[in-house]
Amino acid sequence: MTATTDVRRAAVAAVAACGLVAGCGTTTTGPAAQPTKVHDQHQGQGTQGQPIDMVKTTEADWQQVARALGRPGKLSADGTVYRVGFPRTDLQVTSYGVRIKPPFALGSYAAFARYADGSTMVMGDLVVSEPELPKVTDALQRRGIAQTAVHKHLLAHDPDVWWSHLHATGRDPVAIARAIRAALDQTATPAPAAPSSPPPLDLDTQRIDAALGAKGSNDGGIYKFSFARKETITSHGRVINAAMGVNTALNFQPTGGGKAAINGDFVMTAGEVQKVIQALRRGGIDIVEVHQHALDDEPRLFYMHFWANTDAVRLAVALRAAVDASAVKPA
């Protein structure tokens, strides 16, 4: 066997492998659109095997993306991630008698980051009703947007709602935005509402902050916390951060009398999963799901949704024990 034959066989194998990965090679922008070249996700390492880092951007850099998606986003404080939200204010979802507010667990989003090699990566999560899920799946797959998880965030809830994580990497962020918009158009996701001041919180936020060792924020009447991994996380050879959705998110929805329903996500390495489960159960918190958000993150990360509805300060103490069982810090 000659060296030339070996090279040819390797090239054929590489092409075949690329064909098995959604988003590897091309992304389309619509049913009649021509394929647009995107970055090869399997050649995502920088020089000497170093991950490719994010670069800072401005709001102006993302205006065409905002237009393609039909709504504005928000740039992270460090300028690396442009995140666009699509709250499902149209869905009337209840779980264990609690009416779920959109900022609590019904917020679709797409997070865009630009990289030093000129590529853009998008990670996100779409909240869809059960009848919408097949149509959204088909729309994403037709346009080369990868789905990296399909799961639920809540236990018993009505109507049935699913969450589909998405991923894309390419040279044209507007083409990716149009592909995501095509999937959103398969849902009843409403147009964005005018900004308004969040309602006051019927919670002892000072004691909750003290218990969690962090400062929460009021997002539409939901008290929220975010914790980032302490180590560098990569996907497809590129650095990803908490603003992309790689975070422990703790959400408190007031339910009266100082009580709150809690839901969110713990981000964990494999060795932390059982420790976090045990800490949550010791605090009387139910486990909803254990799953992944990405297909090739490094180190390998898992995410856990949870639920409880009782005294908010007591729940914050229980959540702190689970936070301390994983290598995270306030984001």
Score class of each variant (00 low, 15 high):
89 T>Y: 05
89 T>I: 01
90 D>L: 09
90 D>T: 10
91 L>P: 03
91 L>Y: 15
94 T>Y: 04
96 Y>L: 10
97 G>L: 03
97 G>E: 01
98 V>P: 01
101 K>P: 10
102 P>A: 10
103 P>M: 05
103 P>E: 09
105 A>Q: 00
105 A>H: 01
107 G>I: 08
108 S>M: 08
108 S>W: 02
110 A>P: 13
110 A>M: 14
111 A>T: 00
111 A>H: 02
112 F>T: 03
112 F>W: 04
115 Y>V: 11
116 A>Q: 13
117 D>R: 05
118 G>Q: 11
121 M>C: 02
121 M>L: 15
122 V>K: 07
123 M>S: 09
125 D>S: 05
125 D>C: 06
125 D>F: 11
128 V>R: 14
129 S>L: 06
129 S>Q: 02
130 E>H: 02
131 P>V: 02
132 E>M: 02
133 L>Y: 03
133 L>V: 04
133 L>N: 06
134 P>G: 07
136 V>K: 02
137 T>K: 08
138 D>A: 13
138 D>N: 11
138 D>T: 12
139 A>R: 04
143 R>C: 01
147 Q>R: 15
148 T>H: 15
150 V>A: 12
151 H>M: 12
152 K>W: 02
155 L>I: 08
158 D>A: 12
158 D>Y: 10
159 P>T: 14
159 P>W: 12
159 P>A: 11
160 D>H: 14
160 D>P: 12
160 D>M: 09
160 D>G: 12
161 V>M: 00
163 W>Q: 10
164 S>L: 15
166 L>C: 03
167 H>W: 15
169 T>G: 00
169 T>L: 14
169 T>I: 14
170 G>Q: 01
172 D>E: 09
172 D>P: 03
177 A>T: 06
180 I>Q: 02
180 I>N: 03
